[in-house]
Protein backbone atom coordinates (compact mmCIF):
# COMPACT_ATOMS: atom_id res chain seq x y z
CA UNK A 1 0.00 0.00 0.00
CA UNK A 2 3.07 2.27 0.10
CA UNK A 3 2.47 5.28 -2.08
CA UNK A 4 5.30 6.60 -4.21
CA UNK A 5 5.51 9.78 -2.17
CA UNK A 6 6.03 7.89 1.05
CA UNK A 7 8.75 5.82 -0.52
CA UNK A 8 10.70 8.77 -1.95
CA UNK A 9 10.04 11.46 0.58
CA UNK A 10 12.63 10.39 3.14
CA UNK A 11 12.63 12.82 6.01
CA UNK A 12 9.54 14.95 5.86
CA UNK A 13 11.68 18.13 5.85
CA UNK A 14 11.00 18.69 2.17
CA UNK A 15 7.31 19.21 2.79
CA UNK A 16 5.95 22.44 4.02
CA UNK A 17 5.64 21.50 7.64
CA UNK A 18 2.09 22.07 8.85
CA UNK A 19 2.17 24.10 12.01
CA UNK A 20 1.28 21.83 14.88
CA UNK A 21 2.42 20.94 18.33
CA UNK A 22 5.13 18.30 18.67
CA UNK A 23 6.06 18.68 15.07
CA UNK A 24 9.33 20.55 15.56
CA UNK A 25 10.80 18.16 18.09
CA UNK A 26 10.81 15.36 15.57
CA UNK A 27 11.80 17.40 12.57
CA UNK A 28 14.52 19.63 13.95
CA UNK A 29 17.57 17.49 14.67
CA UNK A 30 17.57 15.57 11.41
CA UNK A 31 17.27 18.47 9.02
CA UNK A 32 17.97 16.04 6.20
CA UNK A 33 21.58 15.42 7.24
CA UNK A 34 21.49 11.80 8.50
CA UNK A 35 18.22 10.35 7.32
CA UNK A 36 19.08 6.74 8.29
CA UNK A 37 19.49 7.11 12.01
CA UNK A 38 16.33 9.11 12.58
CA UNK A 39 14.28 6.66 10.69
CA UNK A 40 15.79 3.72 12.48
CA UNK A 41 15.10 5.40 15.78
CA UNK A 42 11.52 6.06 14.74
CA UNK A 43 11.15 2.48 13.67
CA UNK A 44 12.53 1.26 16.98
CA UNK A 45 10.19 3.61 18.82
CA UNK A 46 7.20 2.45 16.86
CA UNK A 47 7.96 -1.22 17.18
CA UNK A 48 8.76 -1.17 20.90
CA UNK A 49 5.13 -1.21 22.07
CA UNK A 50 4.61 -4.36 20.03
CA UNK A 51 7.50 -6.14 21.68
CA UNK A 52 6.51 -4.93 25.12
CA UNK A 53 2.97 -6.23 24.63
CA UNK A 54 4.17 -9.39 22.93
CA UNK A 55 6.49 -10.07 25.83
CA UNK A 56 3.89 -9.28 28.45
CA UNK A 57 0.92 -11.13 27.02
CA UNK A 58 2.58 -13.91 25.01
CA UNK A 59 6.12 -14.76 26.05
CA UNK A 60 5.70 -14.26 29.80
CA UNK A 61 2.52 -16.33 30.17
CA UNK A 62 3.93 -19.12 28.02
CA UNK A 63 7.09 -19.10 30.10
CA UNK A 64 5.02 -19.18 33.27
CA UNK A 65 2.95 -22.06 31.93
CA UNK A 66 6.14 -23.90 31.06
CA UNK A 67 7.37 -23.38 34.62
CA UNK A 68 4.04 -24.46 36.12
CA UNK A 69 3.95 -27.57 33.97
CA UNK A 70 7.05 -28.87 35.72
CA UNK A 71 5.48 -28.95 39.18
CA UNK A 72 2.82 -30.88 40.99
CA UNK A 73 0.98 -30.33 44.25
CA UNK A 74 1.15 -33.19 46.71
CA UNK A 75 -0.36 -33.86 50.10
CA UNK A 76 -0.05 -36.80 52.42
CA UNK A 77 -2.25 -38.91 54.67
CA UNK A 78 -5.80 -37.57 54.66
CA UNK A 79 -4.60 -34.36 53.09
CA UNK A 80 -5.62 -31.85 55.74
CA UNK A 81 -2.08 -30.90 56.58
CA UNK A 82 -1.75 -28.63 53.56
CA UNK A 83 -0.17 -29.09 50.17
CA UNK A 84 3.39 -28.79 48.96
CA UNK A 85 4.81 -28.23 45.52
CA UNK A 86 7.17 -30.82 44.17
CA UNK A 87 9.20 -30.89 40.99
CA UNK A 88 7.61 -33.30 38.55
CA UNK A 89 9.87 -32.95 35.52
CA UNK A 90 7.94 -34.17 32.53
CA UNK A 91 5.53 -36.05 34.79
CA UNK A 92 2.57 -33.83 33.94
CA UNK A 93 3.18 -34.35 30.23
CA UNK A 94 3.25 -38.12 30.57
CA UNK A 95 0.15 -38.01 32.78
CA UNK A 96 -1.71 -36.05 30.13
CA UNK A 97 -0.54 -38.26 27.28
CA UNK A 98 -1.41 -41.44 29.13
CA UNK A 99 -4.91 -40.12 29.88
CA UNK A 100 -7.34 -41.83 27.54
CA UNK A 101 -9.68 -38.85 27.75
CA UNK A 102 -6.97 -36.42 26.61
CA UNK A 103 -6.03 -38.60 23.66
CA UNK A 104 -9.67 -39.07 22.72
CA UNK A 105 -10.18 -35.31 22.77
CA UNK A 106 -7.69 -34.94 19.92
CA UNK A 107 -9.50 -37.60 17.93
CA UNK A 108 -12.75 -35.68 18.51
CA UNK A 109 -11.41 -32.39 17.21
CA UNK A 110 -9.67 -34.11 14.27
CA UNK A 111 -12.99 -35.51 13.13
CA UNK A 112 -14.65 -32.18 13.85
CA UNK A 113 -12.07 -30.27 11.75
CA UNK A 114 -12.29 -32.78 8.89
CA UNK A 115 -16.02 -32.23 8.60
CA UNK A 116 -16.34 -28.62 9.68
CA UNK A 117 -13.56 -26.89 7.74
CA UNK A 118 -14.53 -28.06 4.23
CA UNK A 119 -18.21 -27.42 4.91
CA UNK A 120 -17.68 -23.97 6.36
CA UNK A 121 -14.95 -22.72 3.99
CA UNK A 122 -16.69 -24.28 0.98
CA UNK A 123 -19.96 -22.72 2.02
CA UNK A 124 -18.58 -19.26 2.55
CA UNK A 125 -16.61 -19.39 -0.69
CA UNK A 126 -19.69 -20.44 -2.62
CA UNK A 127 -21.73 -17.68 -1.00
CA UNK A 128 -19.05 -15.08 -1.66
CA UNK A 129 -18.91 -16.05 -5.33
CA UNK A 130 -22.68 -15.93 -5.58
CA UNK A 131 -22.89 -12.56 -3.91
CA UNK A 132 -20.06 -11.29 -6.11
CA UNK A 133 -22.00 -12.17 -9.21
CA UNK A 134 -25.34 -10.96 -7.91
CA UNK A 135 -27.04 -7.70 -8.68
CA UNK A 136 -25.40 -4.68 -7.17
CA UNK A 137 -28.31 -3.90 -4.86
CA UNK A 138 -28.81 -7.45 -3.65
CA UNK A 139 -25.13 -7.62 -2.71
CA UNK A 140 -25.43 -5.24 0.20
CA UNK A 141 -28.39 -7.12 1.58
CA UNK A 142 -26.77 -10.56 1.34
CA UNK A 143 -23.53 -9.30 2.73
CA UNK A 144 -25.27 -7.96 5.80
CA UNK A 145 -27.70 -10.83 6.21
CA UNK A 146 -24.96 -13.43 5.99
CA UNK A 147 -22.64 -11.56 8.31
CA UNK A 148 -25.27 -10.97 10.95
CA UNK A 149 -24.90 -14.34 12.75
CA UNK A 150 -21.28 -13.50 13.44
CA UNK A 151 -22.31 -10.35 15.26
CA UNK A 152 -23.99 -12.53 17.89
CA UNK A 153 -21.59 -13.62 20.64
CA UNK A 154 -20.68 -17.31 20.47
CA UNK A 155 -22.16 -18.13 23.84
CA UNK A 156 -25.49 -16.53 23.02
CA UNK A 157 -25.53 -18.30 19.66
CA UNK A 158 -24.89 -21.60 21.41
CA UNK A 159 -27.74 -20.99 23.82
CA UNK A 160 -30.10 -20.11 20.97
CA UNK A 161 -29.22 -23.26 19.08
CA UNK A 162 -29.43 -25.39 22.18
CA UNK A 163 -32.94 -24.08 22.62
CA UNK A 164 -33.75 -25.16 19.08
CA UNK A 165 -32.15 -28.57 19.69
CA UNK A 166 -33.78 -29.43 23.00
CA UNK A 167 -36.80 -31.71 22.95
CA UNK A 168 -39.73 -30.19 24.78
CA UNK A 169 -38.57 -26.64 24.10
CA UNK A 170 -37.73 -26.58 20.44
CA UNK A 171 -40.37 -25.42 17.97
CA UNK A 172 -38.31 -27.03 15.19
CA UNK A 173 -38.62 -30.45 16.79
CA UNK A 174 -42.34 -29.85 17.25
CA UNK A 175 -42.67 -29.16 13.51
CA UNK A 176 -40.67 -32.24 12.64
CA UNK A 177 -42.93 -34.28 14.89
CA UNK A 178 -46.05 -32.68 13.48
CA UNK A 179 -44.85 -33.67 10.02
CA UNK A 180 -44.54 -37.24 11.25
CA UNK A 181 -40.75 -37.34 11.45
CA UNK A 182 -38.40 -37.61 14.38
CA UNK A 183 -34.94 -36.31 15.01
CA UNK A 184 -32.70 -36.16 18.05
CA UNK A 185 -30.07 -33.46 17.81
CA UNK A 186 -28.24 -34.89 20.82
CA UNK A 187 -28.13 -38.53 19.68
CA UNK A 188 -24.61 -39.91 19.50
CA UNK A 189 -24.65 -40.04 15.69
CA UNK A 190 -26.07 -36.56 15.24
CA UNK A 191 -24.48 -34.45 17.91
CA UNK A 192 -21.30 -33.73 15.94
CA UNK A 193 -23.42 -32.51 13.04
CA UNK A 194 -25.42 -30.36 15.45
CA UNK A 195 -22.17 -28.85 16.69
CA UNK A 196 -20.84 -28.26 13.17
CA UNK A 197 -24.10 -26.63 12.21
CA UNK A 198 -23.74 -24.29 15.18
CA UNK A 199 -20.16 -23.29 14.35
CA UNK A 200 -20.79 -23.01 10.63
CA UNK A 201 -23.76 -20.77 11.27
CA UNK A 202 -21.52 -18.41 13.20
CA UNK A 203 -18.50 -18.37 10.95
CA UNK A 204 -19.71 -18.84 7.37
CA UNK A 205 -20.85 -15.25 7.05
CA UNK A 206 -17.67 -13.90 8.57
CA UNK A 207 -15.43 -15.73 6.12
CA UNK A 208 -17.77 -14.93 3.30
CA UNK A 209 -17.16 -11.25 3.93
CA UNK A 210 -13.40 -11.80 3.78
CA UNK A 211 -13.71 -13.69 0.50
CA UNK A 212 -16.07 -11.13 -0.89
CA UNK A 213 -13.68 -8.29 -0.02
CA UNK A 214 -10.85 -10.20 -1.70
CA UNK A 215 -13.02 -10.70 -4.77
CA UNK A 216 -13.58 -6.96 -4.99
CA UNK A 217 -9.84 -6.55 -5.46
CA UNK A 218 -9.79 -8.85 -8.48
CA UNK A 219 -9.27 -6.54 -11.46
CA UNK A 220 -12.49 -6.31 -13.43
CA UNK A 221 -10.63 -6.26 -16.73
CA UNK A 222 -9.32 -9.77 -16.06
CA UNK A 223 -12.83 -11.02 -15.54
CA UNK A 224 -14.06 -9.12 -18.56
CA UNK A 225 -11.28 -10.65 -20.62
CA UNK A 226 -12.34 -14.09 -19.46
CA UNK A 227 -15.93 -13.37 -20.37
CA UNK A 228 -14.88 -12.06 -23.78
CA UNK A 229 -12.92 -15.26 -24.27
CA UNK A 230 -16.15 -17.15 -23.75
CA UNK A 231 -15.81 -18.35 -20.15
CA UNK A 232 -19.15 -18.90 -18.39
CA UNK A 233 -19.91 -17.73 -14.84
CA UNK A 234 -18.90 -21.04 -13.27
CA UNK A 235 -15.70 -21.27 -15.24
CA UNK A 236 -14.82 -17.68 -14.39
CA UNK A 237 -15.40 -18.42 -10.74
CA UNK A 238 -13.32 -21.59 -10.67
CA UNK A 239 -10.49 -20.62 -12.99
CA UNK A 240 -10.15 -16.89 -12.45
CA UNK A 241 -11.70 -15.75 -9.21
CA UNK A 242 -10.66 -18.55 -6.85
CA UNK A 243 -7.00 -18.55 -7.94
CA UNK A 244 -6.91 -14.80 -7.58
CA UNK A 245 -8.11 -14.91 -3.98
CA UNK A 246 -5.96 -17.90 -3.04
CA UNK A 247 -4.15 -15.89 -0.35
CA UNK A 248 -7.39 -15.04 1.37
CA UNK A 249 -8.47 -18.68 1.27
CA UNK A 250 -5.22 -19.92 2.77
CA UNK A 251 -5.44 -17.29 5.47
CA UNK A 252 -9.00 -18.18 6.47
CA UNK A 253 -8.19 -21.92 6.46
CA UNK A 254 -5.27 -21.16 8.74
CA UNK A 255 -7.37 -19.11 11.14
CA UNK A 256 -10.17 -21.66 11.07
CA UNK A 257 -7.80 -24.53 11.87
CA UNK A 258 -6.28 -22.68 14.80
CA UNK A 259 -9.72 -21.71 16.05
CA UNK A 260 -11.27 -25.13 15.54
CA UNK A 261 -8.71 -27.04 17.59
CA UNK A 262 -9.51 -24.70 20.47
CA UNK A 263 -13.26 -25.29 20.35
CA UNK A 264 -14.73 -24.84 23.80
CA UNK A 265 -18.07 -23.04 24.06
CA UNK A 266 -20.08 -25.34 21.81
CA UNK A 267 -19.11 -28.66 23.42
CA UNK A 268 -19.29 -27.08 26.88
CA UNK A 269 -22.84 -25.91 26.38
CA UNK A 270 -23.86 -29.16 24.68
CA UNK A 271 -22.38 -31.08 27.60
CA UNK A 272 -24.27 -29.03 30.13
CA UNK A 273 -27.49 -29.48 28.27
CA UNK A 274 -27.13 -33.22 28.37
CA UNK A 275 -25.83 -34.38 25.00
CA UNK A 276 -24.67 -37.84 26.13
CA UNK A 277 -21.61 -38.31 23.95
CA UNK A 278 -20.16 -34.86 24.62
CA UNK A 279 -18.39 -35.49 27.91
CA UNK A 280 -16.65 -33.02 30.18
CA UNK A 281 -13.32 -33.56 28.40
CA UNK A 282 -14.57 -33.81 24.83
CA UNK A 283 -12.13 -31.28 23.38
CA UNK A 284 -8.58 -30.49 24.51
CA UNK A 285 -9.61 -27.10 25.86
CA UNK A 286 -12.36 -28.74 27.92
CA UNK A 287 -9.83 -31.22 29.26
CA UNK A 288 -7.56 -28.34 30.19
CA UNK A 289 -10.39 -26.42 31.79
CA UNK A 290 -11.37 -29.45 33.82
CA UNK A 291 -7.80 -30.20 34.86
CA UNK A 292 -7.28 -26.65 36.01
CA UNK A 293 -10.62 -25.71 37.45
CA UNK A 294 -12.28 -28.95 38.54
CA UNK A 295 -9.29 -31.03 39.56
CA UNK A 296 -7.28 -27.95 40.62
CA UNK A 297 -4.29 -29.57 38.91
CA UNK A 298 -2.63 -26.52 37.44
CA UNK A 299 0.53 -28.39 36.43
CA UNK A 300 -1.45 -30.86 34.34
CA UNK A 301 -3.51 -28.04 32.84
CA UNK A 302 -0.35 -26.13 31.91
CA UNK A 303 1.27 -29.19 30.34
CA UNK A 304 -1.85 -30.00 28.32
CA UNK A 305 -2.16 -26.34 27.22
CA UNK A 306 1.39 -26.29 25.96
CA UNK A 307 0.82 -29.48 24.01
CA UNK A 308 -2.27 -28.00 22.43
CA UNK A 309 -0.30 -24.83 21.60
CA UNK A 310 2.41 -27.00 19.99
CA UNK A 311 -0.24 -28.67 17.86
CA UNK A 312 -1.54 -25.25 16.86
CA UNK A 313 1.91 -24.12 15.80
CA UNK A 314 2.56 -27.33 13.87
CA UNK A 315 -0.79 -27.06 12.17
CA UNK A 316 -0.17 -23.42 11.21
CA UNK A 317 3.14 -24.45 9.71
CA UNK A 318 1.62 -27.27 7.68
CA UNK A 319 -1.32 -25.18 6.46
CA UNK A 320 0.95 -22.31 5.46
CA UNK A 321 3.30 -24.70 3.68
CA UNK A 322 0.53 -26.48 1.79
CA UNK A 323 -1.17 -23.15 1.10
CA UNK A 324 1.95 -21.67 -0.46
CA UNK A 325 2.39 -24.73 -2.63
CA UNK A 326 -1.21 -24.45 -3.76
CA UNK A 327 -0.89 -20.71 -4.42
CA UNK A 328 2.17 -21.40 -6.58
CA UNK A 329 0.32 -24.10 -8.48
CA UNK A 330 -2.82 -22.12 -9.36
Amino acid sequence: MATPSARTAGPPAGHAAPAGPGRSAAGEPTGGVRPGRGRRRAAALLITPFFVLFGAVMVAPIGYALWMSLFRERSSGLGFGGTRRVFAGLGNYTTALSDAGFRASFAHIALYCLLYIPVMIGGSLALALLVDSALARARRFFQLALFLPHAIPGLIASIIWIYLYTPGLSPVLDWIQAAGGSWDFYANDHVLLSMINLSAWQWTGYNMVIFYAALQAVPREVIEAAVVDGAGALRTALRIKIPMIASAIVMTVLFTCVGAIQIFTEPKVLNQRGAPSIDTEWSPTLFIWKAGFVQHDYGLAAAASLMLAALGIALSFVVTRLGNRWKAAV
Binding site: L78, N188, A275, P276, S277, D279, T280, E281, K290, Q295
Partner: peptide, 16 residues
Protein backbone atom coordinates in the same frame (compact mmCIF):
# COMPACT_ATOMS: atom_id res chain seq x y z
CA UNK B 1 -11.25 -35.14 48.98
CA UNK B 2 -11.75 -35.29 45.19
CA UNK B 3 -15.52 -35.06 45.15
CA UNK B 4 -15.96 -32.81 42.14
CA UNK B 5 -13.74 -34.99 40.01
CA UNK B 6 -15.71 -38.07 41.07
CA UNK B 7 -18.93 -36.28 40.16
CA UNK B 8 -17.77 -35.44 36.65
CA UNK B 9 -16.60 -39.02 36.13
CA UNK B 10 -19.99 -40.35 37.28
CA UNK B 11 -21.80 -37.83 35.13
CA UNK B 12 -19.77 -38.42 31.96
CA UNK B 13 -20.21 -42.18 32.08
CA UNK B 14 -23.85 -42.05 33.20
CA UNK B 15 -24.67 -39.91 30.17
CA UNK B 16 -23.55 -42.60 27.75
Amino acid sequence: PDQMDVYTAVQDTTAT
